[in-house]
């Protein structure tokens, strides 16, 4: 069972490599951040798998925390893209 979980985690790591390419290449800022968000999702999946491998308390909490903070980073990005860093792209046409 551990072997299967490790294999699954390795496959997800491979998909993270692909997203990493997008973060490295861009070309736009949104491309890079979407790549980073996708890696965040993959990271949550890896942590859930590792929580079964390690059977250590707290790993699932960590996955939950990362899922929550991914939204936080997305909001930080959206904010930083307005002219003075305080606007809302949806509200300013």
């Amino acid at each position: 069972m551990t072997g299967f979980l490790y294999a699954a985690a390795l496959v997800i790591l491979a998909t993270i490599c692909v997203s990493m390419w997008r973060v490295l290449r861009g070309p736009t800022r949104a491309d890079r951040i979407m790549g980073a968000q996708l890696i965040g999702t993959g990271g949550v999946a890896v942590l859930v798998l590792l929580s079964l491998v390690h059977r250590q308390a707290g790993v699932l909490d960590l996955a939950l925390l990362l899922a929550l903070l991914a939204a936080f980073a997305a909001v930080g990005f959206v904010k930083s893209q307005s002219a003075d860093g305080a606007g809302d792209p949806e509200g300013e046409s």
Binding site: V23, R32, L62
Partner: peptide, 27 residues
């Protein structure tokens, strides 16, 4: 791009801390 990659770097490091059995540090 450098800053976006730094966020990714932090995420990967979090997984590394779990592998090292240091969940408190990972958090």
């Amino acid at each position: 791009g450098s800053v976006a990659l730094f966020i990714v770097y932090g995420l990967l490091l979090t997984i590394a801390w779990v592998r090292l059995g240091a969940v408190d540090v990972a958090l």
